[in-house]
């Protein structure tokens, strides 16, 4: 087992993160951007419907801030915080293998650990930027439709919302970076994990600690669906933060060690 090849170095990690970031924005097909753009389109649609003032339109959507809360709960928190990192993290290495560009990276004077960690950080940064950027635009659209009346109600929750999106990006990206390394049908397994991750959050005992979503609920309790996730006896925000951080680091350590010791043919 080669552990020295897994050891990361700061400047090398930064260089690899820059590579991942630069390549993503220059790529022609960007699934993660499409996913992140979806709620913005929904926000535009809601704003349009509000302006059209259709008869029989659900009154809950009359206030932009309420629509935004629902959008966060149902699309960002339940879906995108999982699927955007899935689109980004799973291909960190496999995309290079399939594109046959991995040899160009493996012959550089940086350890494989630095390369993978850098690419992970780059992907997490992209995920965080997409999710937060998308949420910011959705907020502007929905609150703007009301003349920014509901800003005061949104602001107290905003830090927790943004924090949960960023922390979720890191944790899920680490999970999918490892999955992309070890599994052949990683995308299919990723979808299965989506179901399992949500389901085991409700199981009694220690097993639910394996669920990322279980911890994320604690970070942004207002984002959790009332009556469903809130019924869980979730850990405190600080506990959840440390659990997710440790879990992320463990997943990354395993992924880096595997990557450092694998033959690429």
């Amino acid at each position: 087992m080669n552990l020295s090849g897994a050891r990361p170095r700061g400047p090398d990690v930064l260089a690899a993160a820059t590579l991942e970031w630069s390549l993503y924005w220059r790529r022609r097909v960007r699934l993660a951007t499409v996913l992140a753009a979806a709620p913005v389109l929904v926000a535009f649609l809601i704003a349009l419907l509000k302006n059209l003032d259709l008869p029989g339109f659900d009154p809950i959507l009359v206030r932009g801030v309420d629509a935004l809360t629902l959008l966060f709960r149902w699309i960002y928190f339940l879906g995108l915080v999982f699927f955007v990192p899935l689109a980004l993290g799973i291909g960190l290495v496999s995309r290079e293998v399939e594109g046959k560009t991995l040899p160009l990276l493996l012959v550089r004077p940086l350890s494989r650990g630095s390369l993978l960690l850098g690419k992970f950080l780059g992907a997490s940064a992209i995920s965080g930027a997409l999710l937060c950027g998308s949420y910011a635009v959705s907020s502007l659209v929905l609150l703007g439709a009301d003349g920014f009346d509901g800003v005061g109600e949104l602001l107290p929750n905003l830090p927790a919302y943004v924090f949960s999106l960023c922390l979720g990006s890191l944790a899920y990206c680490a999970l999918f970076a490892l999955l992309g390394l070890v599994a052949r049908y990683a995308v299919v397994i990723g979808f299965a994990i989506f179901l399992v991750d949500s389901f085991i959050a409700f199981l009694p005992g220690l097993i639910r600690n394996l669920s990322v979503r279980y911890h994320l609920v604690s970070v942004a309790p207002d984002a959790a669906l009332p009556g469903i996730f809130q019924a869980l006896s979730v850990p405190s925000g600080v506990e959840a933060f440390f659990s997710l951080s440790i879990g992320t680091l463990l997943l990354l350590a395993v992924a880096m060690t595997l990557f450092a010791n694998r033959n690429y043919v």
Binding site: A15, L19, S22, L23, R26, L105, V107, R108, P109
Partner: peptide
């Protein structure tokens, strides 16, 4: 740092220009 390698496979980062590609590769070399 002391080895240069030209792989056989005709695969590169096709979205980049030649200069952008080399700058990114150089960045990985510090």
């Amino acid at each position: 740092r002391r080895i240069g390698y030209c792989p056989e496979l005709d695969s590169m980062y096709t979205e980049l220009t030649g200069r952008q590609f080399l700058r990114l590769m150089l960045r990985l070399c510090g």
